[in-house]
Design a protein around this nucleic acid. Sequence first.
DNA 1: TTCATTTCTTGTCATTTGCCAAGAGCAACG
DNA 2: CGTTGCTCTTGGCAAATGACAAGAAATGAA
Lengths: 201, 201
Amino acid sequence: MPGNFIPSMSNQKLIQFLNRSNLVSLATAEIIANTFNPKEISRNNFFLKEGKISNEYFFLETGFMRAFAHDTDGNDVTTNFYSGNQVVFEVSSFFNRSISKENIQATADCTGWFITYSELNNLFHELSEFREFGRAVLVKGFASLKTRMLSMITETAEQRYDALLKTNPEIFQHAALKHIASYLGITDTSLSRIRKEYSKK
Amino acid sequence: MPGNFIPSMSNQKLIQFLNRSNLVSLATAEIIANTFNPKEISRNNFFLKEGKISNEYFFLETGFMRAFAHDTDGNDVTTNFYSGNQVVFEVSSFFNRSISKENIQATADCTGWFITYSELNNLFHELSEFREFGRAVLVKGFASLKTRMLSMITETAEQRYDALLKTNPEIFQHAALKHIASYLGITDTSLSRIRKEYSKK
DNA sequence: TTCATTTCTTGTCATTTGCCAAGAGCAACG
DNA sequence: CGTTGCTCTTGGCAAATGACAAGAAATGAA
């Protein structure tokens, strides 16, 4: 073994993530995982900046990230949160090779594994199981956004807060309240009041 | 030619739709289009009913459709509108083979072409161009939903109404105002008032 | 046509949420 | 330490939107 060889992290978590989708066999999961490269992003650093093209398909193993866009007045609006065991990339920019309107920033130190767009396409071409996996990732993201849209229309801000607290409590450990507020579609002032009411119950 | 042979509609529009994506050559578009079957849905009939699995990948050539779900109080909420030259299916139910929570109903007489889930997968397997096309359809739907979510958070109801009127005027020719209202995330009463204010300008 | 049903509008009032400003709490840094 | 900046909370008020009910308009069926 060479002198200053630095052992990479184990990609065991990535292999499990692929395999547990039930779309990728363990053997294939290992092949796929071995083409991914390790990546670390320290807190406050950006995984993606608006104006750039999202070019990395990133499996977030540990850490936490927030995606946000800017409205016409320049206010930032949280579009998504990512915790461990999720795939992170901006769908439209990544697949259309277009400039991203979104930023994705680490709000805690992150570790994980990535492949580039061209590497992903090569894998898709070679491995039908990985294609199925890729489709499932897209479909899952799409479905959860549909659910979120429906809740925006049919539920009150307090109900949405309540649901988020129950289904994604980790968000409250990693994100500022004002960022959670814009994700819920309300101002930080309103969220503060909702929390006050909520704590009485 | 047999006696009561009924010539099918021409699938020229479908071929164009595939080819104009710039992801499918004309020759391949013809191969793909020839595996689609013609389908007509008359006004008020359902393309998909909640409780069933979305099993048809439908190219809507002419007509108009509305997708809607029910909230916990039983009110119907419009989740999407479809006009000509679009692909219609419920992503989550179709790809996950799960029971649909949504209905999709023709609000005008519709004609088009469909393939089933298994036919689609066979085509995906055989034709990488069609895979690219299928991915683009998913990505486009995802991106437009993201845009809509951002507008729900950052824009007023009147701004959303205004944008819909400008970008999708055909919706107003085919859908009831109460159905447009729930799509915009407001009550029919509010939409009526917004229209009143709007008409003064 | 006539009747019944549904859709749309409008009025009144209540509720939610936003906007603005002030202040408290907290962390980072010299 | 003490200052600075950022986040969160709170109060007062305004604006947007919803809930409910009544009536007008449009639609569809007999």
